[in-house]
Design a protein around this nucleic acid. Sequence first.
DNA 1: TCCTTAATAGACACCGGTGTCAAAAACAAG
DNA 2: CTTGTTTTTGACACCGGTGTCTATTAAGGA
Lengths: 350, 350
Amino acid sequence: MPTRANRSKTKQPTINDVAALAGVSKKTVSRVINESPLISEKTREKVKKVIDKLGFVPNPQARALAFRRNFLIVLLHDNPNAQTVLNFQNGVLDAIKDSDLALLVRPVNRGSDDMLENVRVFLEKQRPIGALLLPPISENDDLTELCQSLGVRYVRIGSATLDDPGRCISSNDREVVEKACRELIDLGHRRIGFVRGPQGFRSAKERELGFQDALAAAGLTMPDELIAQGNYRIDSGTEAGERLLSLKDRPTAIFASNDEMAAGVMQVALGNGISVPEQLSIIGFDDSPTATHIWPRLSTVRWPIREMGAHAAHMLVSDFLPPVPDIKDPEYAMLPSKFIERQSVAAPKK
Amino acid sequence: MPTRANRSKTKQPTINDVAALAGVSKKTVSRVINESPLISEKTREKVKKVIDKLGFVPNPQARALAFRRNFLIVLLHDNPNAQTVLNFQNGVLDAIKDSDLALLVRPVNRGSDDMLENVRVFLEKQRPIGALLLPPISENDDLTELCQSLGVRYVRIGSATLDDPGRCISSNDREVVEKACRELIDLGHRRIGFVRGPQGFRSAKERELGFQDALAAAGLTMPDELIAQGNYRIDSGTEAGERLLSLKDRPTAIFASNDEMAAGVMQVALGNGISVPEQLSIIGFDDSPTATHIWPRLSTVRWPIREMGAHAAHMLVSDFLPPVPDIKDPEYAMLPSKFIERQSVAAPKK
DNA sequence: TCCTTAATAGACACCGGTGTCAAAAACAAG
DNA sequence: CTTGTTTTTGACACCGGTGTCTATTAAGGA
């Protein structure tokens, strides 16, 4: 069976083959594949026919060398939430699926001193067209400056509007959290616990602000004893739950700044015979798979992360991507989050 | 004529700059960066000094063009379980962190007819060193043949040993499932339900075989009424749970072929006042985050997916990677899964 | 000391595209 | 039919490395 051997020996056609067969110069072929306007319709057709016949695909490495730029976009992240990263990544992949672009993933270590240097070397090596910055590193101005100085476009994803127009995608987390918490208040909850996200995360801050807004609007206060510090991990959720639920006058509802911590709170509640939502309402944030896997299913806020990925990709490299109907205006930078009601919320029992 | 300061600001140093400054030919510099043995220690040192001084980093695009191969490995997957993909991906990234390699992610559409053609174009364009195939597409022989014919190395990940030595990583799922189920039997369970994974998945098959092994060893039968078909999604878990738990003589334990379906079963149990593990023991598979997020926490089988990622990367491109102590032998292809006991299993109530 | 052989270094073409700029062709006007 | 102007096209250098083959140097033997 000669098929395999043949294939491996057969070289892919190059621009020279096309040029020779079409009887034009390679530069002319180059113009055709780059859709240059400086070419007559007649030659364009002629060359295109040969390209199709030969199945010629331009070599990205050679283009990258000549362009001094790779047809790549990189995803930089240091995100504690794997699911978020993957969803976002899938959104990006959706967007670039039918383009010439490829996606490179690069986790960075936000803590370390040489983070910036690492990223610089990486970007200098890969020379991508652009970079996508996921929170929390999207808030790092050194990184965006680095991108600028290397001529790498970037788009930052954030939970609040960053002052960097045209290069930033955010959602209205604060507003939606406020709405979700107002719902608790409307149901009659007066003592509402709050599990805070980690310090220094913009997302955590935004969610807390939304919570405060709701309380303030209802004229409620936020006593320290009802606030617990968390770190977005489940264990900090159980710790928070243990403290909050052992209070003498325990809260009738708890808002946790993400689903994982909400799951922790719920474990403590169920483990202590406190039924959810009858005796305790819980709201999370992220709409991660966890939200539907736990019982009762968690009311939460859905952050449109996959859509953000697609949108961010379009914002970053709209000139390389086929236009997509549902992304009318890649400049439009806010994608709304949504409160999703499931079974973990009810009116407080008197 | 640009001054040196100018140039260093504008442009990264190239092999030519190094050659000029070191007073050697570019080919000699090339030998140094490629660690060729055909060079004297003296010149090597001299050149290395200049490389460090200039901070020269070889341009990967140029190398790729000359080598006709990109310093890239691609991850091909069509996996319904996002968490698995991400974990694996992180394992790969761990492994290539300090190397010259980068990771390209490529989801493929197993169903579609042009899948193979898509992958071919992708590989021909990107010219990666190698490809990593996650299940279920790792079982597709057309794909591996394609890789062969394009000179792309590959490593396939599977839940059972595939007959492709040196290019395959697997775990001992069957054995571990058998052990987990034997534990149920030893606790006294006699009626054990089974939620099957989707048809055509090797992983699903392996888990089922392990289950059968355990039952057979104990002389138990596997009545049809205790078997439910699932698809690894939570809804199929709840459906299975609804059917199995409404049986007149309902099972005292259920093994679900993955955690998500186990979570579905658990939701049905808790929703119907069947307490876990007192009245129903549940075991899952994957040790996904879900397993610890639900309550009670799920006993499950941990599949060492992240380690497999690192291991697979080493198997694929050990010659590009710095040796790592814990991966003594990249040829060794089996990474053991482990049964993890949490709170969802207990002896059946008489 | 001279010749042979092995080790090292360099010249040069090449990988497959793109940018620049000048030449050729097409068109318009005189 | 020229001449001037605008399109189109092509020649050629270049992007930054590597492979091949030859020239040079160093080492070893007679």
